[in-house]
Nucleic acid binder design. Structure first.
Lengths: 206, 206
DNA sequence: ACAAAAATTAACTGTTTAGTTGAAATAAAT
DNA sequence: ATTTATTTCAACTAAACAGTTAATTTTTGT
């Protein structure tokens, strides 16, 4: 019977998963080395296979958990029963909090999805696609009443997602061109998190 | 003496480069296989090493040319001597044309930069950083006159870049959640290219 | 206290992939 | 025409890497 002797926080399995998550998220599936994961977790490389069988399987766990960690949280915010302005403020504020807590996930997922666009297609369709439709419908209804900017609902949603996600994906470029160090960039993100929800509402509704 | 017998378009060296560019841009450095590049170029794998010595060197050529192809074009648009509204319309319109012609470059560059953030730091600083500063200054001056939205210049610029670049990076997700096929998504991009410059001006200036 | 199960390790093997080689074909130069 | 340089290729080698094994230590149940 498998029983943890050490507390969950420092169990070998968890140390491996966390090291793997870090390495896969920064290097991608092929860029990651099993030895590097083992080193970062401070365990023998055999333990990776002992707990996760193969690189592929370990990656799959990291990949799926990365998505499951953020996607359901985010899309649920789109279908709360609120007037558009409240929903937008709520959605953007919480979305930014979630990405901020998981800043490496967007680029990681998009790179992997780019290599293999069909992977997770059904998951995306069911977990995101389905739940985005009612929000788009709400946008269209407000547009008919003349309450939104004059753009198709999909374009508005892409504007919103773009402004929230891109700074995290583009960090290495932005940090250099604005000549910021790590702390300065973190403050830039904090400033953004404070200003953006209101800006999105102002530039989307009227 | 090296002399091309076939015309430039179909020379082996060029076929290799183009195949390498496609494969590296969609799979990344480590995800790419030399054999896959050879197959796509329809040449023997040895030719890759004959012309480019190593995977690393071939990659470097592709990576640098990807940047040189787009970066100078884009930043030059920021320092033309035009009033802000004209400059913004001009910048966004042409920027979108350039990305649209090279849609795979942003994700490619950002993924590689994420793996190795210091690489190309001086290039970025000199080619982009320096040239962005005067534009930020122009934004700040207009802000003082009360002509722009009330946000720090850097945040405004990030908003603009986000809305232009993200749809290309996020294509695999967006296409699925909006349930679009390739052609429908291309039309979505075309619509965006038409609507976005004006939207950016409206949401940035006042 | 002891046996059984689980966890850990160092050394090893197998596979994949980048890179080489030497011979053959083709093109260019004399 | 014949030599010389370049280009191409199939078969090979070398290196890096994932994955295995078997022996050892630690933990757990009785």
């Amino acid at each position: 019977m498998k029983e943890e002797s050490q507390d969950e926080q420092s169990s070998t399995e968890k140390k491996i998963f966390e090291a793997a998550r870090d390495v896969f998220q920064s290097k991608g599936l092929e860029g990651a080395r099993m030895q590097e994961i083992a080193d970062k977790a401070k365990i023998n490389k055999s333990m990776l296979h002992y707990y996760y069988r193969s690189k592929e399987k370990l990656f799959e766990k990291v990949y799926q958990l990365s998505l499951i960690k953020v996607i359901p949280q985010i899309v649920s915010l789109l279908n709360e029963d609120l007037p558009l302005e409240q929903k937008l403020l709520n959605f953007t504020t919480k979305y930014l909090e979630i990405i901020r807590a998981n800043p490496d996930i967007p680029l990681f997922v998009l790179h992997e999805l780019n290599k293999n666009p069909t992977r997770l297609k059904t998951f995306m369709l069911n977990e995101v696609g389905r739940k985005v439709q009612p929000f788009l419908e709400q946008l269209r209804q407000e547009a008919q009443k003349g309450n939104t900017v004059d753009l198709p609902a999909e374009q508005i949603l892409v504007n919103i997602m773009s402004m929230m996600i891109f700074p995290f994906i583009g960090r290495p470029v932005l940090q250099v061109i604005f000549e910021m160090d790590e702390d300065e960039f973190d403050r830039f993100i904090e400033e953004r998190v404070n200003l953006l929800p209101e800006f999105i509402v102002r530039s989307t509704l009227k």
